[in-house]
């Protein structure tokens, strides 16, 4: 169960980060395509929070201090 949770968090982070990047590029190509209907800042905040959780959950063993 713990391994599945770790994989889930890692996948959520990767998928949301790639999604944000793709949406950001599309917004640059066509202004309003994303921002008319959805605030990308909310997704960015989500990516950052999940990223921090991902580091704590999946990379804590590399912290040797």
């Amino acid at each position: 169960m713990t391994n599945i949770f770790k994989k889930f968090i890692h996948d959520i982070f990767c998928i949301s980060l790639i999604t944000w990047l793709v949406y950001f590029v599309l917004e640059l190509l066509k202004e309003g395509l994303i921002s008319n209907y959805f605030d990308l800042n909310l997704l960015l905040i989500f990516v950052i929070i999940v990223g921090v959780i991902n580091i704590r959950v999946n990379y804590k063993q590399y912290d040797s201090r």
């Binding site: 998928i15 793709v22 949406y23 066509k30 309003g32 395509l33 008319n36 959805f38």
Partner: peptide, 13 residues
């Protein structure tokens, strides 16, 4: 999920 959502946004636009 994000692919479907992108399709929805494209449909709206």
């Amino acid at each position: 999920i994000p692919i479907i959502f992108l399709g929805y946004l494209l449909y709206q636009d």
